[in-house]
Design a binder for these strands. Structure first.
Length: 603
RNA sequence: CGGGGCGUAGCGCAGUCUGGCAGCGCACCUGCCUUGGGCGCAGGGGGUCCCCGGUUCAAAUCCGGGCGCCCCGACCA
């Protein structure tokens, strides 16, 4: 029987006597994954702060602990998961030809002023001053720094293309951190930046990253979907999001049932209705609608369908009032409106502002006579007679025809896609799902290279701006996303490639043959390149089973009296299935083989 | 930032309305027992009742102020 290479024995309180030899503290180069020695503070009860399942389970399994709102400690087992995710991402980036570097988390404000984002990024950018009273910020992303680096070091088209990435802690002062590490303020992110001579080669770099992302998420064993997305404050022409599909996802996704079109709901295009727009059907007329504020109330009062009513929403776009109109039974898409107005900030106007702008109270706004920019959803042009607010209390206008009565309105795609809408690409049906954004790829064009003067000399000696792309993966968020996808009543079910350990070895008796056998299997597994956790605690079997399940360890090897009598170890998969009896002599080798086939990699 | 809620032992909570010994379960420590799915019995330790101020003979409890956290809405990997 093997024994550990320790010089002096260490006893744990739980063993309470002459247990098996322990690893010497002074000589522990050897990996220690003994439950009694690792900090794994599992909880029976769920802390009150957690709402979603991944957050609850990460706390209960002792993977993380909160330090402050949106700021977490990663405990030993949680860190192992994080490191495994990180390693897969790193390997796929390297494979795709990207080069790893590391940039500072603390960055000078002046650089952000140069790109214009010191003013535009908003409160999410955590700013502070150093002792010399100079502005600094905690980096939420690294376009400025990487562009600054490249503009200094890259001169010639011969230096391009270039793809640089890092895996680093970011800080975004989220308005409302929630769901544990899912939406934390401090989080671990992989961010890559590509630099190319023109749009064509930049598109190729983009394709390479897309491919690397697909490979990474496949290896992470996550169910995901790639969708078209809004590029938000990062900017650029277009972008894709990688969504892990989960009911609790914060994003809604629309995808075509016939072709491969898929988009974030906030981006999903709505095609214009078919056919000719009708002419005016009625004369415009004011009607009394006492107390009818909502579309429902107005429609019921006037005995028309909600679709015959047009909502007029008053927004402030960078402080300037604008009106947005959608059909009464539709939802306005604020992202689309924001992009149409080109505003950095778009908020619904407060009731007092609405009164001031329209002359009427909330619920009675309408486009007729409004002296502010008006954006009207294209669908509204297919009605010959709309009901709209009259900009005075208790009154609406009926028979309104947009082209006749509101000629200055800008016709646009302004509403949220909804069930029943056709696919904007092929006309097929749209399906709706929810997802967690774990990756985002952007074509940046020359936005940052022009702002910061990152240029190269082409073969003719002409100076040209470098064409950029940027590519993010939320490493810490993936851990939460994986748990959202893999859990049951007993706890986490980790995919093998990112499990904190691949195998839990449970001796049901911590003295004698069971413990010796378990320890031998534990060591053989490590020797075979499979990481294992030995539950050497002197506790009842039930506790060990529960903890092992809670932690989501994919494989379990149980050594108990029953099996030992027959020279067998018991093997069970966390994801389900029958218990198998393995011959003790080959148990470790067999389990190691199965673990590797399932994607196990020792950390 | 707006709206709602919470803050009492490591965790989950009761006590607060109606001021009067600071409690329960789990966890932890000791002993016994038990040993195949969070076992049982006995004993024990542990409190800035979030902080500051006020009212009162007396404050976890009432009043004022502050801080922290969670949930619902607008931002993002």
């Amino acid at each position: 029987m093997r024994s550990l290479p320790c010089i002096s024995a260490r006893q744990t309180s739980s063993a309470g006597g002459c247990g098996p030899p322990r690893i010497n503290r002074a000589t522990r180069e050897k990996v220690v994954m003994r439950f009694s020695q690792v900090l794994i503070p599992t909880l029976k009860e769920t802390p009150a702060e957690a709402e979603v399942i991944s957050h609850k389970l990460m706390l209960r399994a002792g993977l993380i602990r909160k330090l402050s709102s949106g700021i977490y400690n990663w405990l030993p087992l949680g860190l192992r998961v994080l490191r495994k995710v990180e390693r897969i991402v790193r390997q796929e980036m390297d494979r795709a030809g990207a080069q790893e570097l590391l940039m500072p988390a603390v960055q000078p404000g002046d650089l952000w002023r140069e790109s214009g984002r010191w003013e535009h990024y908003g409160r999410e950018l955590l700013r502070f001053k150093d002792r010399h009273d100079h502005d600094y910020c905690l980096a939420p992303t690294h376009e400025e720094v990487i562009t600054d680096l490249v503009r200094r070091e890259v001169r010639s088209y011969r230096d391009l293309p270039l793809n640089l990435y890092q895996i680093q802690t970011k800080f975004r002062d989220e308005i409302r951190p929630r769901f544990g590490v899912m939406r934390a303020r401090e989080f671990l992110m992989k961010d890559a930046y590509s630099f190319d001579v023109d749009e064509e080669t930049s598109a190729e770099s983009y394709r390479i990253m897309q491919k690397a992302y697909r490979a990474a998420f496949q290896r992470l064993a996550l169910k995901f979907s790639v969708v078209e997305a809004d590029s938000g404050s990062i900017g650029g022409s277009f972008s894709h999001e990688f969504m892990v599909l989960a009911e609790t996802g914060e994003d809604a996704i629309a995808s075509c049932e016939s072709c491969d079109y898929a988009a974030n709901l906030e981006k999903a295009e709505v095609p214009a209705p078919q056919g000719q727009t009708p002419g005016p059907a009625q004369e415009k007329a004011q009607v009394a609608t006492p107390g009818a504020h909502t579309v429902e109330e107005v429609a019921r009062f006037l005995k028309v369908a909600p679709a015959a009513v047009a909502k007029t929403l008053i927004y402030l776009a960078d402080g300037q009032p604008v009106a947005a109109m959608v059909r009464g039974d539709r939802e306005a898409n604020e992202i689309k409106l924001k992009n149409l107005t080109g505003a950095a900030e778009l908020v619904l106007a407060a009731p007092s502002a609405i009164q001031e702008i329209t002359g009427g109270p909330v619920g009675f706004s309408g486009p007729v006579g409004l002296a502010i920019p008006i954006y009207a959803d294209q669908e509204l042009y297919y009605s010959g007679a709309l009901v709209v607010g009259a900009n005075q209390a208790d009154a609406h206008l009926s028979g309104v025809h947009l082209e006749r009565d509101v000629p200055q309105a800008k016709r646009a795609d302004l509403r949220q896609a909804a069930p029943g809408d056709p696919c904007p690409r092929c006309g097929g049906g749209l399906a709706f799902a929810r997802g967690i954004e774990v990756g985002h790829t952007f074509r940046l064009g020359t936005k940052y290279s022009q702002a910061l003067g990152a240029a190269y000399l082409d073969a003719e000696g002409q100076s040209k701006p470098i064409v950029m792309g940027c590519y993010g993966i939320g490493v810490s968020r993936i851990v939460a996303a994986a748990i959202e996808q893999g859990n049951d009543a007993d706890g986490i079910i980790f995919p093998m490639p990112i499990a904190p350990v691949s195998v839990a070895v449970l001796p049901l008796d911590v003295e004698g043959q069971a413990m010796e056998t378990a320890q031998a299997i534990y060591e053989d597994l490590w020797a075979a390149g499979v990481d294992a956790l030995l539950d050497d605690r002197d506790l009842r079997p039930g506790v060990k089973f529960k903890d092992s399940d809670l932690l989501g360890v994919p494989f379990k090897v149980v050594i108990g009296k029953k099996g030992l009598k027959e020279g067998k170890a018991e093997f069970k998969r966390r994801a389900g299935g029958q218990t198998e009896m393995l011959d003790l002599k080959e148990a470790a080798a067999l389990v190691a083989k199965m673990a590797k086939e399932a994607g196990a990699q020792s950390l």
